[in-house]
Design a protein around this nucleic acid. Sequence first.
DNA 1: GCCAACGTTGGC
DNA 2: GCCAACGTTGGC
Length: 205
Amino acid sequence: MPPRKKRKTAAPATSNSKEISKPIISNTVIGPKYECWLMKSEPESRYENGIDVKFGIEDLINEPNQTACWDGVRNYQARNFMRDQMKEGQLAFFYHSNCRPPGIAGIIKIVKEGYVDHTQYDSKDPHYDRTSTKENPRWYMVDVQFVRKTKRFIPLSELKDMYMKHKQIDGPLSNVALFTRARLSVQPLTSEEFDFILSLEEAAE
DNA sequence: GCCAACGTTGGC
DNA sequence: GCCAACGTTGGC
């Protein structure tokens, strides 16, 4: 199951009180601080169990309030980021995957923190999980809202060139999850990584 | 459509 | 808890 997403929602913002099991940052080992994100979604039609999982940035723009729940993520690391670490107001890149060309299309923000992904209980949903129970939900999602498109599409190829370069010189993208954990559909970015990538939208390549 | 990388499952 | 088999992601 693909961590792809979406459709529906536009949840009014009762901020959720649930989830108390927060992360607790054991800073015994100090890792990078993640306050920004990259979220992948497929902008082109693809059918899973007969249902189109297409959800590109234009689809988000067309949602009520330009807001959608990021349902359908079925990977534990990605879930943990959404459930435990994403905070309201944080920014994320909207990344187009499984298309040509792949890359960053826009910026979104987290408008509702982690809560139970209802699609896990829906037997008709492509991401139905028959083993998850209401008493002990397995999958979580957040709500995101469109902020803006990037001034230009920032292709993966360009990010990869930067990554390769930065690995040599220990530049800002030398550890970026997009390449060090390529298959994760919800990825963390440090502010430095986020800002560097954002600065690329100005450049003419 | 191919397939490398990597996550998950389940036997032992 | 190991690890082989299998499934998925997603670039190309």
